[in-house]
């Protein structure tokens, strides 16, 4: 980030053809989604092999905790989108509070997941119990790692949107961070559907 810096030029209008973020982040997002697609296929296979066993194991999960986390993540995606809008509109304080709200959502998600894991393990359901729980813990754990990394990403986004006039490049970074966060949300929606409601 050294060298000659261009003058801050804020991205003001969205002409409808503007690709959010920089091209590189889409490699990350699409690549990650391909890998999760493999995970989803594995879950579908586990379900196909033993639908009854899948249903029995699924009944153990607390559906409402899953629903709470879904609502939390979808809401945080919304606050993130609003934060990008606020940053584009040159309203740093509003943008910063919206990013903070998004981060709060991420923290709540992690906390709920921790409660869920503790409760399941205390009741004797571990990754060793069945194929369903093996993949439940591995895939939700992998997703949780995305959420934790997302907290770091959001912290970086927060630092940028606090400034009064982020450069075009910095706005690109904010949009990239937002894109990552929407992906985390989207992956959870599919995981939630497959783990808590399939069948």
């Amino acid at each position: 980030m050294t060298g000659v810096r261009t003058e801050p030029d804020r991205v003001i209008a969205d002409d409808g053809e503007h690709m959010p973020g920089e091209a590189g982040i889409w490699i990350f997002v699409l690549g990650d989604m391909v890998v999760f697609a493999v995970c989803f296929a594995v879950l579908a296979l586990v379900h196909a092999q033993d639908p009854a066993g899948y249903a029995v194991a699924q009944d153990v999960l607390h559906l409402w905790l899953g629903v709470v986390n879904t609502v939390v993540l979808v809401t945080s995606s919304l606050t993130m989108a609003l934060a990008v809008h606020a940053a584009r509109a040159g309203r740093p304080r509003r943008a910063a509070s919206l990013v903070l709200a998004t981060m709060a959502g991420a923290v709540v998600f992690v906390a709920v997941k921790a409660v869920e894991y503790t409760d399941l393990v205390a009741a004797g359901h571990t990754a060793r119990s069945s194929d369903f729980f093996l993949y439940y813990f591995c895939f939700t754990g992998l997703h949780l790692l995305h959420v934790v990394i997302g907290l770091g990403v959001l912290a970086g986004v927060l630092r940028i949107v606090r400034r009064t006039a982020p450069t075009r490049h910095e706005m690109g970074l904010v949009e990239s961070g937002a894109g990552y966060w929407h992906m985390v949300d989207l992956l959870w929606l599919v995981l939630f559907g497959l783990l808590y409601t399939l069948g």
Binding site: M1, V4, G24, I27, C138, L145
Partner: peptide, 27 residues
């Protein structure tokens, strides 16, 4: 990703690509 965004020596997508690859090795 540390490169000057206006004059990158290596394409910036390569940075994201490497981070994604690193991440994928975790499982």
């Amino acid at each position: 990703l540390m490169q000057d965004p206006d004059r990158p020596r290596l394409p910036r997508w390569l940075g994201f690509y490497n981070l994604w690859t690193a991440f994928l090795t975790l499982p």
